[in-house]
Every structure is written in structure tokens, then in C-alpha cells.
């Protein structure tokens, strides 16, 4: 099982290296362990996260791609769909059946047809358009809804911090 997971991860790494989606760099933290990746995501243009470089860890299970990886931002984040500890809450990271929030349709869930690239693209669009119905970070959700100005300020601070300025 671990063998086919490894092959699949290798194939995805290759694909992501030769043909990465815009504003994304991702690969194993080190070549010894293909089950632990680091991804850099460029904050999407025209959003409050524009210009930031956000770092995230992806941890793959040994039965990948049957089970989805876990993803956790290591950069500081403030976003309705990211838990305060950095874990990302989007439907593509959940296998059909486990639905902690009870609002996802199974079409957008994890399945072996999904990929690291698709996850990262989902995360980019999540950064651009937060879903304030799922409150992974309730404070952020509330602020996003009620005080966009302050939310943008916090986001801007995080952008600066993320690129070390």
C-alpha cells in the first residue's frame, strides 16, 4: 500500500514541478520522506491576502490516495476556514462519510481522483473567497462578516509577516 502511495506522490511531485499551477510551490520537506510535504501558496491577487507567501505542511496517510492528506498552515493565519492552530477546513480534505460540519455535498469531497494540485487550488480559492458558514475560526468568520475593514488590516499584517517585512 505504502508503495503505491509513494509512486502516486512521486508522480504528483513531478507534475507539480514541471507544470505548477500559478503561485504554488510544493514538494516533500525532504527526499527521505515523501509523506510530509511543504507547500508555499502565494496570496491571490486582488484579495486581502495578496502578495503574502503562506507556508503549509501536508501530511499524507500511507493509504494515499484512498484517504486524503491533512493540511496545516505553519504561517500565522487569520481566516474563517482555518482553525487557529493552522488546520485547514475545506471539503476536499474530507473523505465522504466524515462530515464534521454537516454541510458538504459528497461531490466536492476527497476521492482518489483528487490531487495535491486540486487541494492547493481549492486552498487558493478559499483564501480568495472565505466560506463564513463553516466557522473553523469563529472570530475570523464574525469579523469577515461584520468588520471587513479590520479583517483586511489583520490580513495585511499577516501578509507582511509572511514575507518577512
Amino acid at each position: 500500500m505504502a508503495g503505491s502511495a509513494l509512486k502516486r506522490l512521486m508522480a504528483e511531485y513531478k507534475q507539480l514541478t514541471l507544470n505548477p499551477p500559478e503561485g504554488i510551490v510544493a514538494g516533500p520537506v525532504n527526499e527521505e520522506n515523501f509523506f510530509e510535504w511543504e507547500a508555499l501558496i502565494l496570496g491571490p491577487e486582488g484579495t486581502c491576502f495578496e502578495g503574502g507567501v503562506f507556508q503549509a505542511r501536508m501530511t499524507f496517510p500511507s493509504d494515499y490516495p484512498l484517504s486524503p492528506p491533512k493540511m496545516k498552515f505553519t504561517s500565522e493565519m487569520f481566516h474563517p476556514n482555518i482553525y487557529p492552530d493552522g488546520r485547514v477546513c475545506i471539503s476536499i480534505l474530507h473523505a465522504p462519510g466524515d462530515d464534521p460540519m454537516g454541510y458538504e455535498s459528497s461531490s466536492e469531497r476527497w476521492s482518489p481522483v483528487q490531487s495535491v494540485e486540486k487541494i492547493l487550488l481549492s486552498v487558493v480559492s478559499m483564501l480568495a473567497e472565505p466560506n463564513d458558514e463553516s466557522g473553523a475560526n469563529v472570530d475570523a468568520s464574525k469579523m469577515w462578516r461584520e468588520d471587513r475593514e479590520q479583517f483586511n488590516q489583520i490580513a495585511h499584517r499577516l501578509v507582511r509577516k509572511s514575507i518577512g517585512l
Partner: peptide, 28 residues
């Protein structure tokens, strides 16, 4: 334009890893 950080997929793990690190640095 949003840049793409493509690289070569080298057969040697070390080279590959170097390229990954370079691309990360380039993004920053």
C-alpha cells in the same frame, strides 16, 4: 502576472530538492 514556479524534475533526489528550495526562495 501571477508567476509560475516550474522547475526541472531531476532524477537525482539531491538536485531535485535543491531545485525545490530554489523555487521556494524565488517565490519569497
Amino acid at each position: 502576472e501571477v508567476p509560475k514556479f516550474a522547475g526541472e524534475f531531476n532524477r537525482s533526489p539531491d538536485q531535485r530538492h535543491m531545485s525545490l528550495q530554489e523555487r521556494k526562495q524565488a517565490m519569497y
